[in-house]
Computed example of a mutant assay.
Amino acid sequence: MEVVLQRKVNNRRMNVIFVLLILTIICVWYFQTCRVPIEVTGFAGFSRVITDELPVSTEGTFSVITYNVAGLPQLICSAVTERTTSITEIGRRLNSYDIVHVQEDFNYNSFLYKSNEHPYKTKTKGKVPFGDGLNTLSKFPIITLHRVPWKNCSGADCLTPKGFTYSRIEVAKNIYIDFYNVHANSADDPGAAAARRKNIKQLSYYIKQHSEGNAVIVMGDLNAHFCYEHDNIRDLLADNDLQDAWVELKSNNNLPVFRAFAKENILELNDDCESIDKILYRSNLQLKLTPSNYRYEYGTFNNEQGFPLSDHCPVSLVFNWKLIPQH
Results as ranks from 00 to 15, higher is better:
residue 274 E to F: 08
residue 262 A to V: 14
residue 324 I to D: 02
residue 180 Y to W: 11
residue 283 S to G: 04
residue 308 P to M: 06
residue 8 K to S: 11
residue 228 Y to A: 10
residue 167 S to W: 00
residue 55 P to V: 07
residue 189 D to H: 11
residue 120 Y to W: 14
residue 307 F to C: 10
residue 49 V to Y: 10
residue 231 D to G: 00
residue 178 D to N: 12
residue 176 Y to W: 01
residue 44 A to G: 11
residue 211 S to G: 03
residue 181 N to L: 07
residue 223 N to T: 05
residue 236 L to G: 00
residue 271 D to E: 12
residue 194 A to D: 06
residue 211 S to V: 07
residue 120 Y to P: 00
residue 59 E to R: 10
residue 171 V to N: 00
residue 163 G to N: 06
residue 208 K to V: 04
residue 272 D to Y: 09
residue 142 I to R: 04
residue 89 E to V: 07
residue 324 I to M: 06
residue 274 E to D: 02
residue 235 D to L: 09
residue 240 N to W: 09
residue 251 S to E: 06
residue 154 S to W: 07
residue 133 G to W: 03
residue 325 P to W: 05
residue 230 H to Q: 13
residue 218 V to W: 03
residue 275 S to W: 10
residue 261 F to E: 03
residue 165 T to M: 03
residue 93 R to G: 05
residue 252 N to V: 01
residue 48 R to Y: 13
residue 134 L to W: 03
residue 189 D to I: 15
residue 9 V to H: 12
residue 95 N to Q: 00
residue 170 E to G: 06
residue 136 T to V: 15
residue 236 L to T: 03
residue 42 G to K: 15
residue 13 R to Q: 12
residue 58 T to V: 13
residue 166 Y to L: 14
residue 89 E to M: 03
residue 161 P to F: 09
residue 192 A to L: 02
residue 40 V to R: 10
residue 271 D to A: 08
residue 109 N to W: 10
residue 315 V to Q: 02
residue 308 P to T: 07
residue 317 L to F: 08
residue 180 Y to I: 12
residue 189 D to V: 15
residue 61 T to A: 04
residue 103 Q to E: 14
residue 164 F to H: 06
residue 104 E to D: 08
residue 180 Y to Q: 08
residue 186 S to L: 02
residue 98 D to A: 04
residue 36 V to Y: 02
residue 47 S to K: 12
residue 143 I to Q: 10
residue 324 I to L: 03
residue 325 P to L: 02
